[in-house]
Design a protein around this nucleic acid. Sequence first.
DNA 1: CTTCAGGTACGATTCAAGTCGTACCTGAAG
DNA 2: CTTCAGGTACGACTTGAATCGTACCTGAAG
Lengths: 111, 111
Amino acid sequence: MAGKNLVGPEADALDLGTVFRALADEHRRSVMTELAADRSDSERGCNSFDLPISKQTQTHHFRVLREAGLIDEIDYGNRKGIRLRRADIDKRFPGLLTLLGAESPGGTAPR
Amino acid sequence: MAGKNLVGPEADALDLGTVFRALADEHRRSVMTELAADRSDSERGCNSFDLPISKQTQTHHFRVLREAGLIDEIDYGNRKGIRLRRADIDKRFPGLLTLLGAESPGGTAPR
DNA sequence: CTTCAGGTACGATTCAAGTCGTACCTGAAG
DNA sequence: CTTCAGGTACGACTTGAATCGTACCTGAAG
């Protein structure tokens, strides 16, 4: 029940290259955009993001995000929780999360 | 003498995924960091960045940066000029260039 | 003209990353 | 106990990206 928090890098150890590489993928960026949009920063389930990829690949992506220091993964054994590390990101790279909200140019153009 | 400006995307067409992918590479990011640090935004030569890679690879990297909309390349035939598209970047992704200056964590810790 | 340095074009190589198939683990619910 | 859904581990495949070798182009300087 107590769920172990899987380990990620310290806030000061976040690397910009690793972060950019993590955010370069469309799927991972969509996850981060959703997380950044929710100001309450509540814990979410892995499958609450509608990712059009297999669960093995989802596992891979969430691991990349965690190892980049962008999210926390809480392991409950047979299920997993995801939480945005907003404070750490804002401390290390202020403005990054805001940037994720600027996806659409004018506001409507899809591409 | 007049140097043609090689074509890149419009300011509104800058794509965050493309930009992050461009900035994920250490060499390209070092170029962008240098450019962002120079507030005068003067035109620079390609070899003014001390990149430890062959010239063919440099050509490749500068092309990626241009196609991402981050720099302008001015072709003089036998030499090339590089200029940061600061205004367009600031307009489309405000805070991004500032982020590039936050490379070192505390100020000294290398990792 | 020739020479030379800066750049590009094309292809080959190498390596990292995204993806999924198969098998297995974990905890909750019957 | 068994069943089942969520997740992981490992391996294989595939694609894209970084790199460089060779050859060629361009403009300036002799």
